[in-house]
């Protein structure tokens, strides 16, 4: 009795076939426009250099952004403020364990990621067991970890092993290795979100926590995984950053906190949770880098640069945001 109520295929066919761009396309388009304007101003000089620098630096933002995106997707109020601490700690541990020796690269990487992921577990426990709001929990764990990193690193700058430094600054088939790492991680995250129980649970959780629980999805496990992955990605970023910039420093994670949130949100991920846009992070990271490049090329003063950056971001969100309603 229900089937005969269905609109016949003929009714459905002329449905509005207007072109609806995926959300993640907008920041990428904006990045392309900004790049084009830069190149027009410079008369096309340095195109290759700008592109390759943009992709390399964006890669690090993408890696931390992916973790932050998962956290933000898990629902309103969730954010990981311990990312800079995880970056500093992982960078310091990796450099110290590797101690400039090529043979210790794997051990250093494992120790650094292990420490970062332990931070993720600690964050989860603070939030779930002690019921501390995520902002406070991750902020306080960040303070503690930052102090540990200071005590541990003693401010000494240890050089990365040559093979590792070569990897971080090198290229494969013309693409920077960091970008390749970030691309692989993006692909994995995309796959995980769409095709695994964890991914679906996370997206369900972000839309409606209570409904996710009542639908029988493993909510607690998904929260723990998210917390650990975010810290782990930040840790990886820290190690790669140390390898890339010739050693770790204590405040090297600083700029990644706001950036990780910015690339996530500009990329189209819903702040209210439940909708993640891994590809948008790429567009957003490229956009942020290219804006700075463009404004530098224009030779603007620092103050004007910041104002312009803010205006451009608001414009992109306003244009792209209106199309988010799925």
């Amino acid at each position: 009795m229900i089937t005969n109520d269905l609109p016949s295929p003929a009714d459905v066919a002329p449905a509005r076939r207007t072109l609806v761009l995926p959300v993640w396309v907008w920041p990428l388009l904006a990045a392309a426009v900004v790049l084009a304007m830069t190149l027009i101003y410079s008369g096309g000089r340095g195109a290759a250099d700008i592109m390759s620098a943009a992709v390399t630096f964006s890669a690090l933002f993408v890696i931390v952004g992916l973790g932050q995106m998962l956290v933000i997707t898990s629902g309103p109020g969730n954010v990981d403020l311990s990312i800079p601490a995880a970056i500093s700690l992982a960078g310091a541990i990796a450099m110290k364990v590797m101690d400039g020796s090529n043979g210790m690269i794997v051990a250093g990487l494992a120790a650094a990621l292990g420490a970062a992921m332990a931070l993720g577990v600690a964050n989860y426990l603070l939030i779930r067991l002690l019921r501390i709001p995520p902002i406070i929990a991750t902020l306080s764990s960040a303070l503690i970890v930052q102090s540990i990193a200071i005590a541990y690193g003693r401010g000494l700058k240890i050089k990365p092993p040559p093979a590792f430094a070569d990897f971080c600054t090198g290229r494969t088939l013309g693409v920077s290795n960091l970008a390749l790492v970030a691309a692989v991680l993006t692909a994995i995250v995309l796959l995980v979100l769409a095709r695994t129980v964890y991914g679906r649970t996370l997206l369900a959780l972000g839309q409606n926590q209570r409904a996710a629980r009542l639908a029988g999805t493993p909510v607690s496990r998904a929260r723990l995984t998210t917390s650990v992955v975010s810290a782990g990605f930040a840790g990886l970023c820290g190690v790669l950053l140390a390898g890339f910039s010739g050693g770790s420093s204590l405040n090297m994670g600083e700029e990644y906190l706001l950036a990780s949130i910015a690339v996530t949100v500009i990329g189209g991920t819903s702040v209210a949770g439940g909708r993640a846009e891994p590809l948008g992070i790429w567009g957003a990271a490229l956009l942020l880098f290219l804006i700075v490049t463009m404004l530098n090329t224009f030779g603007l003063s620092a103050g004007v640069r910041l104002i312009a950056t803010g205006v451009i971001i608001v414009t992109v969100i306003a244009i792209g945001g209106g199309r988010k309603a799925a």
């Binding site: 839309q207 409904a211 639908a215």
Partner: peptide
């Protein structure tokens, strides 16, 4: 498995398709 009566607060995932809403369990 639970069939909630309060669809809005206990049931549907508003951003998802019908198909995903069914398969989630």
């Amino acid at each position: 498995a639970l069939v909630p009566g309060d669809r809005q607060s206990d049931g549907v995932f508003p951003l998802w398709s019908i198909s995903r809403n069914i398969s989630v369990r």
